Simulated assay, not measured.
Amino acid sequence: MKPNIGIVNSMIRITAGLSMLTYLTIRGARHENSSSHPLLIILSALKVAEGIVRFCPLTAVYEDMAAETDGIEESWQQDIPHNQ
């Protein structure tokens, strides 16, 4: 995996992920009858992991889709045979 996010972006992801994890942990500890949503905990842990390894899968997919070949955009034309 080649890093596809910068240092500042990775630090922001680590900070935001740890902040979200802290908030969700405190929220879950204070309200015993309502637990924190597990999906939010997983998403915040993923943000921390993305910051540590400096690789974001969504950014990689976006860069692959946005890449042009030889500077020319390919069209979605269908090859329909013409009867003459």
Rank of each mutant, 00 (worst) to 15 (best):
I26S: 09
R27P: 05
R27T: 11
G28D: 08
A29M: 11
A29R: 14
A29I: 13
A29Q: 12
R30D: 13
R30E: 15
R30S: 15
H31V: 15
H31Q: 13
H31F: 10
H31A: 12
H31W: 09
E32W: 08
E32F: 08
E32T: 14
E32N: 11
N33T: 13
S34V: 14
S35D: 08
S35Q: 08
S35W: 08
S36L: 05
H37I: 12
H37A: 15
H37T: 10
H37R: 13
H37V: 14
H37M: 11
P38W: 11
P38M: 07
P38Y: 09
L39T: 12
L40C: 09
I41P: 03
I41G: 06
I42G: 02
I42H: 03
I42W: 03
I42M: 06
I42S: 05
L43K: 06
L43H: 10
S44I: 03
S44W: 02
S44E: 04
A45G: 02
A45D: 01
A45S: 05
L46E: 02
L46Q: 04
K47W: 15
K47G: 12
V48H: 00
V48E: 00
A49E: 06
E50Q: 13
E50R: 08
E50F: 13
G51W: 00
G51K: 00
V53C: 11
V53Y: 07
V53D: 04
F55D: 00
F55M: 02
F55I: 02
C56W: 01
C56G: 04
P57A: 12
P57E: 07
L58F: 06
L58N: 03
T59G: 07
T59R: 07
A60W: 05
A60F: 07
A60I: 04
A60M: 04
V61P: 06
V61M: 12
V61K: 14
Y62F: 11
